[in-house]
């Protein structure tokens, strides 16, 4: 195994494009190192991006949003008051991952690029309409979060691509986001199902725009437009919530495994959508 620690994302992209065999990027290592140690996967090339310029910073963008570097740890996001105030759903989703110790290492980008259908931060990013900055030999490009996951454990990133940062949009007036997941215990577990909701209200408290995303209920994260439509134009009354829950459940295409059954996950998606929507609504300033 070859280990590299480049000081820029462009040289990381160059190393990756020239590397032979399998490649892994190392940020927090909470997936890569665990797989290495437990003899699940040992890459031929390991590229540590922690020293790359901008990898560890959280910055305000020109348009008033946020740029979160690829090696920013969960704890750094949770301790960033402004970020947490503007995107509580995204920050809470990251904070749900692992333990206090894991939070000191785990990254948003790592969670995305690991490709797990159950990644907690990914539905929250989809709901927030986050963008992903990808560096390659030919330069930088910006893509949607939905463009990254391909299938369990796989992404659409090409050889030589390296994710630099996540961009969060400006928080709109009267908007709020939330993420909820279900696990059988209180912490230290993988989502059986997860749901991210972002919504915006008009001055009367009616939902004027929304996004609803689901995790762990399909091979990749789902952006459920029909569930968003079910609450747009409503004040989140019971009928609207039930309608959204039914639509969310019907969008699911899960598997039965050691964490849950098809029936259970499908059911949970609706329950979580209702609960997350209520939190987002309150955060947007709405009152029911």
């Amino acid at each position: 195994m070859q280990y590299y620690s480049p000081d820029s994302f462009s040289s990381a992209a160059e190393i990756a494009s020239k590397a032979q065999g399998s490649i892994r990027f190392l940020a927090g290592g909470t997936d890569v190192l665990v797989q290495l140690r437990s003899d699940i996967f040992t890459p031929d090339t390991l590229i540590d991006i922690k020293k790359a310029e901008g990898a560890k910073s959280i910055e305000r963008t020109e348009d008033g949003g946020w740029r979160i570097g690829a090696a920013v740890a969960g704890a750094e996001m949770s301790e960033h008051a402004e970020l947490k105030n503007e995107w509580p759903g995204v920050v809470e989703a990251v904070d749900l991952i692992g333990s206090t110790q894991i939070q000191g290492r785990a990254t948003l980008v790592g969670n995305l690029c690991n490709g797990s259908p159950a990644a907690d931060s990914v539905p929250a990013l989809v709901a927030a309409d986050a963008r992903i900055v990808v560096q390659s030999l030919s330069g930088e490009r910006i893509v949607s979060v939905m463009d990254i996951p391909k299938s369990p454990g796989k992404t659409n990133l090409e050889k030589g691509d390296v994710v630099k940062a996540v961009l969060l949009p400006t928080r709109a007036e009267r908007s709020g986001d939330a993420y909820l997941r279900f696990i059988p215990r209180s912490e230290m577990d993988i989502a059986v199902a997860g749901c991210g909701v972002w919504l915006q209200l008009d001055e009367q408290g009616v939902v004027s725009a929304a996004r609803v995303s689901l995790g762990a209920v399909a091979p990749t994260v789902l952006d459920v437009d029909a569930a968003a439509k079910a609450i747009i134009g409503t004040k989140l009354d019971d009928a609207a919530l039930e309608n959204m829950a039914a639509v969310a459940s019907s969008a699911c295409n899960p598997i039965t495994d050691r964490r849950g059954t098809v029936e259970y996950r499908t059911h949970l998606a609706g329950v979580l959508a209702k609960r997350a929507a209520k939190i987002a609504y309150t955060r947007a300033g709405g009152s029911q």
């Binding site: 059988p184 215990r185 209180s186 912490e187 230290m188 577990d189 993988i190 495994d257 050691r258 964490r259």
Partner: peptide
């Protein structure tokens, strides 16, 4: 009573040979 169990696949292999999916209670539970 609540969450611990040996889970076998159709192939007879143990599906949860670790503390992630073999769920003993945490202190917070």
């Amino acid at each position: 009573a609540l969450n611990e169990e040996y889970i076998y696949g159709d192939d007879g292999r143990l599906q949860n040979a670790g503390f992630l999916d073999y769920r003993i209670p945490l202190a917070s539970d």
